[in-house]
C-alpha cells in the first residue's frame, strides 16, 4: 500500500479528534479571554486582541518551518506526501500571516491612533506574507507539477534561511528609527487569568491548523492519485466485476494499518 493511501486511511481517524480538540479549546479560550480575563491596566480592553493576534502570529511562523521541513523531506528523500502537505499548508500559513497583520493593525487604532505603523513585528509579518505569496505563486507558475513542487521547496528553504536575518534587520532598523512604546512583540508580565486563555487559544489554533492542513492534504492526495487504483476503488469508478474483490482487500489493508 502506498504512503498516500496509508495517510488517507489514518488521517480519517485522526480528524474527528483534532476537530473536537480545536473547537473545545478555541471556545473556552475565546470566551475566557474576551469576557472574563481582566483588562490590561495600561491598554484597557484593546489588549484582548492578543488572543487572536499572538496565536495567528505563532502559527504563521510555525507554518513556514513546516514548509521548510517538508521541503527537506521532499528534496532529499523524494517523499511526495511531504510536498502534498506543503501544498496544503502554504495558503493557510499565508492566511494566518494575513490574520496576524489584520489583528495587529486593528490593535493599532486604540494604541497608536493609526491603522498602520512600521512596528518591527508588523513589518516582519508583512515581509513574511510576501514570502508565502512567492512560494504559492511559484508553485503554480510551472506547467509541470513536479517542477513546481521542487521550485517551491527550494524557495521555502531559501526563505527559511532568510527569515531570521530579515527579523534581525527589521528589529534593528525599527529600534534605530522609532523606539516604540508599545509593541505586540513583547507581552508584559501577565497574571495567570490572562495567559491561560492565551495558551488555550494558541493550542486551539494549532489543533485547528493541523486539522485544516490534514483535510487539505487529503484533497491533494485524491487529486494527485486520482488515476490510481485505490482512489478509483474509493470513489467507485471501477468496473463492477473487479471492484468488490479489490474493495475487500483494500479494506483489509486499511484495518491492518
Amino acid at each position: 500500500m502506498s504512503a498516500p493511501a496509508t495517510f488517507f486511511a489514518a488521517s480519517s481517524r485522526w480528524l474527528p479528534w483534532l476537530w473536537s480538540l480545536a473547537i473545545i479549546m478555541l471556545l473556552i479560550g475565546s470566551v475566557w479571554g474576551l469576557a472574563f480575563a481582566p483588562a490590561d491596566y495600561q491598554q484597557g480592553n484593546s489588549f484582548r486582541i492578543i488572543y487572536v493576534h499572538v496565536p495567528a502570529a505563532i502559527l504563521a511562523q510555525s507554518c513556514f518551518m513546516l514548509l521548510a521541513a517538508c521541503a527537506v523531506i521532499f528534496l532529499v528523500w523524494k517523499i511526495k506526501l511531504a510536498d502534498m502537505v506543503a501544498t496544503a499548508a502554504a495558503p493557510i500559513g499565508a492566511l494566518m500571516t494575513a490574520l496576524a497583520l489584520f489583528s495587529g493593525s486593528v490593535w493599532g487604532i486604540p494604541t497608536w491612533g493609526t491603522w498602520w505603523i512600521w512596528d518591527a513585528r508588523l513589518t516582519s509579518m508583512l515581509i513574511q506574507l510576501f514570502l508565502y505569496l512567492g512560494v504559492i505563486v511559484l508553485r503554480g507558475a510551472f506547467a509541470s507539477r513536479d517542477s513546481g513542487s521542487r521550485a517551491a521547496s527550494i524557495l521555502a528553504l531559501v526563505g527559511m534561511v532568510n527569515i531570521p536575518i530579515i527579523k534581525y534587520s527589521v528589529d534593528w532598523w525599527s529600534t534605530l528609527h522609532q523606539p516604540a512604546t508599545f509593541t505586540l512583540s513583547e507581552a508584559p508580565p501577565m497574571p495567570a487569568s490572562m495567559w491561560i486563555p492565551l495558551l488555550l487559544m494558541v493550542m486551539g489554533f494549532y489543533a485547528f491548523f493541523t486539522a485544516l492542513v490534514l483535510m487539505r492534504t487529503r484533497v491533494e492526495v485524491l487529486r494527485r492519485e486520482s488515476a490510481k487504483q485505490w482512489v478509483r476503488l474509493l470513489l467507485n469508478i471501477v468496473p463492477e466485476r473487479a471492484s468488490s474483490v479489490h474493495a475487500a482487500s483494500v479494506q483489509a489493508k486499511d484495518e491492518r494499518h
Binding site: F130, L131, L133, G134, V135, A141, L155, G159, N162, S169
Partner: peptide, 27 residues
C-alpha cells in the same frame, strides 16, 4: 534560476526576490 524556465518569469522574479533583498537594503 528558479524562473528561467518560465515564459513570463520577470514579475514572479520580483515577487520572490524583493522580500529577500530587505536586509541588504536596510544595512
Amino acid at each position: 534560476a528558479l524562473t528561467v524556465g518560465l515564459r513570463r518569469g520577470g514579475v514572479l522574479l520580483s515577487l520572490i526576490i524583493l522580500p529577500l533583498y530587505i536586509p541588504v537594503l536596510i544595512f
